[in-house]
């Protein structure tokens, strides 16, 4: 028994130390969540799902804003992780600098982020985000964030290194003409998510966008999205909380025209609903949904990095006008 225990304990200690070492390599390449839950607490936040995560580049906005000291941070995740609800509200409450009262908060409002799969009947436990990483976290700002790596990451921690070495390998092999194309994500220090691909020829990508827009529409149909009264109540609660820490703007992001047409047909009164919330809570609502044709998308639903830069300039100008 002694020999077995000695050897087992030695093996366990080595494995634990190896994991601790690996955790220090975790960064924006690890996945689309880690960087955001391992950066410190923030004064100003951009909030929402994956559209917001890719559309808002805080560094660009800070450089244009008349109050750059706001230090905006993109704390948007995905539609699955961060639909407006108790899980995301808890994450936001933990991420905001508690003493700050003069930040800015850009809250993305989209029909999907305010919908549930089917009728949730006001039951928060059935919301989709309950099955994802943020629901398992209490700490959103420590580095390394062991809680996330243990409960939410979902891979062996060696994958952290794999994710770091994959992009240069794929790029090199691709440049050698061996046909190894690929796509990977990177979360920048400001929290913005960039989807990189070996194929940056957007004339090629644009050909697929119509189909990707259709895919997105079909996906929403399959998932049977329904606007949720519960999520709207949490949106109100989130606005009330954020108003205590600064100025809140509701933002409807630009989407591909095809998707926008679908959103209008499915949710004809969505805009009025948001306007009502904005009036009730005395916060400003900025609607870019119809401007999709002006921007470049990496698929039918998300802005490309180039599109995001242009949009970030546009929203910064808009914020300057509204302030």
């Amino acid at each position: 028994m002694k020999l077995f225990l000695h050897k087992s304990i030695l093996a366990i200690v080595v494995v634990v130390l190896l994991h601790m070492l690996l955790s220090f390599f975790a960064d924006g390449y690890t996945d689309s969540v880690y960087e955001k839950v391992s950066s410190g607490k923030k004064k100003s936040l951009a909030l929402g799902g994956s559209r917001m995560s890719q559309a808002i580049i805080p560094q660009v906005i800070d450089s244009i804003l008349e109050k750059p000291e706001n230090e905006l941070y993109n704390f948007a995740f995905t539609n699955s992780h961060s639909g407006i609800g108790p899980v995301y509200l808890n994450a936001v409450k933990n991420k905001v600098l508690s003493k700050s009262t003069n930040g800015i908060f850009l809250v993305s409002v989209s029909p999907w982020g305010l919908s549930s799969y089917g009728n949730d009947n006001g039951d928060a436990t059935v919301l989709r985000e309950q099955n994802f990483g943020l629901a398992k976290l209490s700490n959103f700002s420590s580095s390394p964030n062991y809680e996330y790596l243990l409960n939410g990451y979902g891979y062996g921690w060696g994958n952290i290194l794999l994710k770091k070495v994959e992009p240069p390998i794929i790029s090199t092999v691709n440049e050698m003409g061996l046909g190894l194309d690929g796509k990977w994500s990177y979360v920048h220090n400001d929290g913005s998510l960039e989807i990189k691909t070996t194929n940056n020829d957007f004339s090629q990508i644009n050909k697929k966008i119509q189909k990707q827009a259709d895919d997105f529409i079909n996906e929403t149909k399959e998932k049977n999205y329904e606007l949720s009264a519960l999520r709207f109540s949490y949106l109100n609660e989130m606005i009330t909380f954020l108003k205590g820490h600064g100025t809140v703007y509701l933002v409807r992001l630009p989407v591909h025209p095809k998707v926008f047409q679908y959103e209008i047909s499915k949710y004809p009164s969505f805009n009025q609903m948001i306007e009502k919330i904005s009036d009730t809570n005395s916060v400003k609502y900025i609607n870019f949904a119809e401007d999709g044709a002006q921007y470049e998308f990496c698929d039918g639903n998300h802005l490309s990095r180039k599109g995001a830069k242009l949009f970030s300039i546009e929203i910064a100008k808009s914020l300057n006008r509204k302030q």
Partner: peptide, 17 residues
């Protein structure tokens, strides 16, 4: 051999429950 398999699990393993 043990180290190799532990490394393979750590690098390529999926633990999404």
């Amino acid at each position: 051999v043990y180290s190799l398999f532990i490394l393979l699990i750590i690098v390529f393993g999926r633990f999404n429950n």
